[in-house]
């Protein structure tokens, strides 16, 4: 392949605006973490599902049945770490009430992290002897075997409350509907938004979208978490501004169509609506080389 073509490809993928955008987001987050760390008061809006955690755990205590937590089908990554962080505050509530817990895992590494964090919670609450290592379990790392196992635990132990948080796929409704059968109070949050509607249909409280990431800030009120939440908010505002400006620019540019040969050069099919985009505002900016 000619180097010339290669450079075109290169520039399309490696424009400076894209780097600048990400650096801006990173800067927003870091600045706000520092700002929140200095004790600047940050208020965040109410997240309905999270207020119910204490109530759900309390009810489990009344009926004397365990609560179930599942950190999703993810391997060990930021999403499952976030889920386990949320679970650690749920476990803290459970320890105070003396409610038994079940934490079922899909991945060996996640199991290790969960085991340690749950043990730490029992330790910091001063009741390490109450911790049962078998309450944090690895089930299976095949999707439907895992679902079958979780469904079995839900039905046999008649769990009183369930918390599904993390990345869930098709098995979400198997677990949630089984928990519904045994009358559990359910709180769910998933990063796989395709599964959110099924949680909405089966659970009592559902955290939508990135309320999942806001949850640990909401529960823990740590400056670092609050700060990064605010930073992400700023990024969203900037993105909205960007979309508005770019749309206006596009509108004026779209009044004159792109010449056909130029379109061909960019490798876009004839008859596509999206084909003219690289010619438009965003494309012009991103096409600019970093060098």
């Amino acid at each position: 392949m000619e180097l010339q073509d290669y450079w075109l490809q290169y520039k399309l993928e490696w424009g400076w605006v894209e780097y600048g955008t990400i650096l801006l987001v990173v800067a927003f987050i870091l600045y706000n973490i520092v700002r929140a760390g200095r004790g600047k008061g940050v208020t965040i809006r109410r997240i309905p599902g999270l207020d119910q955690i204490d109530e759900a755990v309390g009810r489990a205590t009344e009926v004397g049945r365990p609560i179930l937590m599942v950190p999703g089908l993810g391997v060990l990554d930021g999403i499952t770490v976030q889920a386990i962080t949320i679970f650690s505050s749920i476990v803290r509530t459970a320890v105070r009430f003396g409610t038994p817990i079940r934490l079922l895992n899909y991945d060996g590494a996640v199991y290790a992290v969960a085991q340690e964090i749950v043990r730490d919670v029992y330790l910091s609450e001063g009741v390490p002897e109450q911790f049962d290592p078998d309450s944090v379990r690895f089930v299976s790392d095949r999707q439907f075997a895992f679902a079958a196992g979780v469904a079995g635990v839900i039905q046999r132990e008649k769990v009183a409350a369930t918390f599904f948080m993390g990345a869930f796929y098709a098995e979400s409704i198997i677990m949630a509907e089984n928990a519904n059968m045994v009358g559990a109070i359910q709180v769910a949050a998933t990063t796989q938004f395709i599964q959110t509607p099924f949680f909405i249909a089966t659970c009592d409280y559902v955290l939508l979208g990135d309320e999942f990431y806001a949850a640990s800030a909401y529960l823990g009120r740590q400056p670092v978490l609050l700060g990064s939440l605010v930073g992400a908010d700023w990024a969203k505002m900037v993105f909205v501004m960007f979309v508005l400006i770019a749309a206006i620019a596009h509108s004026f540019e779209a009044r004159t169509p792109v010449p056909a040969d130029e379109r061909q050069d960019l490798g876009f099919a004839d008859g596509q609506i999206y084909k003219d985009r690289p010619q438009l505002f965003f494309g012009k900016m991103t096409k600019a080389s970093r060098f």
Partner: peptide, 25 residues
Amino acid sequence: AIDLGLGLGILAMAIRIMLGLERGV
């Protein structure tokens, strides 16, 4: 829009993990 929010959440998480600011890690 919901996806973009999730992406920002992941990015923030990644920064926190890399800088050792996340408690779990």
